[in-house]
Design a protein around this nucleic acid. Structure first.
Lengths: 128, 128
DNA sequence: CTCCTATATGCTTATATGCGAATATAAGCA
DNA sequence: TGCTTATATTCGCATATAAGCATATAGGAG
């Protein structure tokens, strides 16, 4: 499986994909799709589509737990990719800080290490 | 001037732009457009177009000497970009080795540090 | 089996990006 | 000035990519 690095750069050439990857790199955690939707404030179908691009290039790993699918950065892909990850991790922390803040809020609602609320918070948002 | 890094990755998401940048990074030299045309074996107008993308993002610097315009990597752009350059320099040496070989052949035709032959070698190629 | 929820994918339309040919610009020289 | 060469840009066309909506899939609970 010979990796085409132009493809990797092209994948990172979309702001939302970088923001997704940045969530994984900065938090170091497995994050589920509905949590990403909250952190990035973009529709679920967009998150899934962009995750597919990252998955096809082996930049992320997935774990399914019941209905929830958790994503994390894949540091075992290749040395070049993990060197790239280090650069992003080093320089993008403050660049997308708002995403990380919203992620933290959302992660605080977990029970143990698991997401339990899905999209139910959106129903509450109608109150405001 | 706030740099959009998704744009930088998008610029590197084209194989020919990476190959151009790789020429600068591996050789460490200023290279003129007609030499790039020979090294990458793509038309001159494509080289100029791709160089424009790199120039607009401040990834390369230019020097004009008479008719010839020399390009080189711009290491002063930002720390993040120069960290990216280091990753590319480290991992792409053998990946585009043929470009570098052709560049070396072409650079050996310089007089001093200057390109002097332009596109005249193409006229000789009709013999073969 | 049926219903519900989280995630993934098709499909259609709009937008953007690519190429190649021709041409413009800019500098040197006669 | 006018000619030549190196480099840059413009234009029209084909193709690719993005957004939004609807729907499909997959797993859990009753």
């Amino acid at each position: 499986m010979k990796l085409d690095f132009a493809q990797v750069f092209k994948a990172l050439g979309d702001e939302r994909r970088i923001r997704l990857l940045n969530l994984f790199l900065q938090s170091g955690k497995k994050i589920c799709v509905c949590e990403m939707v909250d952190a990035l404030r973009i529709p679920q179908y967009q998150v899934s589509k962009h995750l597919k691009v990252l998955r096809n290039l082996d930049l992320v790993k997935t774990t399914r737990e019941g209905l929830w699918v958790y994503y994390e950065a894949n540091w075992e892909s290749s040395e070049c990719v993990s060197d790239l990850f280090k650069v992003i991790k080093k320089h993008f922390q403050e660049r997308f800080n708002e995403d990380l803040q919203r992620l933290d809020e959302r992660l605080s609602l977990r029970e143990g290490d698991s997401c339990v609320i899905g999209y139910s918070i959106y129903e509450k948002e109608n109150e405001s």
